[in-house]
Amino acid sequence: MKMTPKTATLLVLAALIALTPFFFPSGYYYRVGALLFVNGIAVTGMVILTGYAGQISLGHAGFAGIGAYACALAPVHWGLHPALAVILGAAISAILAFLVGRPILRLKGYYLGVATLGLGILVAMVLNNERQLTGGPDGMAVPELGLRALLKGWGLTLSNGEFWYFFCGLVLLVGAWLALNLYASPTGRALRALHGSEVAARTVGIDVARLKLQAFVISAVYASVSGSLLALQNKFVTPDVAGFMHSIEMVTMAVLGGVGSVLGAIFGAGILTLLPQVLTVFAEYEQMVLGLVMVLVMIFLREGLLPSVLRKFRGKDE
């Protein structure tokens, strides 16, 4: 039986998540892997927004910030369990995305870029300035998720690094599964259609404004969950999680790997997560190399790394 692209993607991802630890030289790499997966989750949301629906956002870190600070604040102030705080953060992100999405998504190209950028910056600014609540630029502590202790009670003992590696890997798999379901679904088709030609999409009955909004809200939830997981595993959060650079990182990861496909974008997340690790030896040059990679990939591999590499691999040149 022929494997569908969805099954293939999920199998490749699952295999990578399960098998890579056998090659880890030290426990430190679990931490890097977990970070990669967290980025992968946010980037999968960008695939839905940018890859499927063709809309740009330069402010999605704002939603990551909401997710992260929900986990820091809700348990302390309202005694909410951190797991529920993740859901609360996602809900707040979704509501915010829903409220601002409709006017913002009427905009196109650079205008959409600057509007989303402004949105993200405003969130970051609130987190920076409301010191009594958020601790300001110094950040604040985030409580323990508690799942690891629960697992231990059931007889499954994992180190902190291992736990977060596999937990984030699992969430990424679920996120990828949802995104792949969406791709082939009526909603996914409508999103890709409006990406191709908005006017034609409207004439076949697609409510373009509504569908863009759905993609925006879904991708905001992905970003929020990614922010929550980042905060929970670091047990600490600073406003940088919502910062402009983090937004840019999300877009870059997605486009770098190939925003049209879930696997490609996660691949991009991998590259951009690992690059600083590789470059720690040349810490001085890290920023220059990052900038250069962004420029070169966009010029020479326009579809992103993975699709370009795969094409070379198959020897098919169109």
């Binding site: 088709r189 890709r192 259609a193 990406h195 191709g196 030609s197 006017v199 034609a200 999409a201 004439t203 049209g260």
Partner: peptide, 8 residues
């Protein structure tokens, strides 16, 4: 002037 969805 055709309005198709080229990548689909």
């Amino acid at each position: 002037n055709l309005q198709i969805f080229p990548s689909m």
